[in-house]
């Protein structure tokens, strides 16, 4: 194997070469396609999760459906959506939103269930109105569980975007296709490192957010 794993000059030349396949542009696209689904997923999952927590009969069917959704291979969903949304970022964003929902709805429900009954009861007894009880008491207590789900959703989303490269919309995933076609390691290694680094940063940001949002839950190491 003469070819080195990483050619630094390639990185220097292609980080920002002005074209649509410069690493910087791919990274930006990757971020958009990874985070829009997670944020959209969270916004949808909170009301749906609350509904499932309140109306217990909703929970089993919802979780059942989410389990099924989660089991669908991303490439298959991208391919099926191609016929509707074409070669656009939407084709990647919609399935990833579904995957995020599959993780986040159970997380919201589990979060609400993690509120101890005696806490909920005493909030009622002190005269909290339902809405106020939700926002002031229940949701804050549910935050750690929800954010644990958000970490999983964000990291999976970031790594799954790259599969979109096979339908022409994969952010950093393009580098894998490029490297494979040219039998050239550098773009592949750069792609893997950036995807993992992005996942790591997202994970750390969520952990930091959790520490800020729930100072009472900080565990002594």
């Amino acid at each position: 194997m003469d070819e080195p794993l990483v050619r630094w000059d390639w990185i220097a030349r292609n980080w920002d070469n002005g074209g649509p396949t410069s690493v910087k542009v791919l990274l930006e696209n990757h971020i958009v396609m990874a985070f829009v689904p997670v944020i959209a997923g969270l916004l949808i999952a909170i009301p749906l999760g609350l509904a499932c927590a309140r109306y217990r009969w909703l929970y089993q069917p919802t979780v059942g459906i989410m389990n099924v959704v989660y089991s669908l291979p991303s490439l298959a969903l991208f391919s099926i959506l191609l016929s509707v949304t074409g070669l656009t970022q939407t084709t990647v964003i919609i399935p990833l939103t579904l995957f995020s929902l599959a993780v986040l709805i159970p997380a919201v429900v589990d979060g609400m269930r993690s509120v101890p009954d005696h806490v909920r009861q005493s909030a009622v007894a002190m005269g909290f109105q339902p809405m106020r009880r939700l926002t002031r008491v229940e949701l804050p207590i549910a935050v750690p569980v929800v954010l644990a789900g958000l970490r999983v959703a964000a990291v999976s989303s970031i790594s799954l975007v790259s599969v979109g490269a096979l339908i022409g919309q994969g952010g950093l995933g393009y580098l894998f296709i490029d490297g494979w076609q040219r039998q050239f390691y550098t773009p592949i290694v750069v792609g893997i490192v950036l995807v993992v680094a992005l996942a790591l940063v997202a994970d750390l940001v969520i952990i930091a957010a959790q520490r800020l949002l729930t100072p009472w839950a900080r565990r002594r190491a």
Binding site: V155, L160, S162, I177, W180, I192, V196, A199
Partner: peptide, 19 residues
């Protein structure tokens, strides 16, 4: 567990197969 979730499967595949 954490690494597995973050690793892009397509990237891993093409790299290992190329190698």
């Amino acid at each position: 567990a954490n690494a597995a979730r973050a690793l892009p499967t397509l990237g891993l595949l093409v790299l290992v197969v190329l190698l």
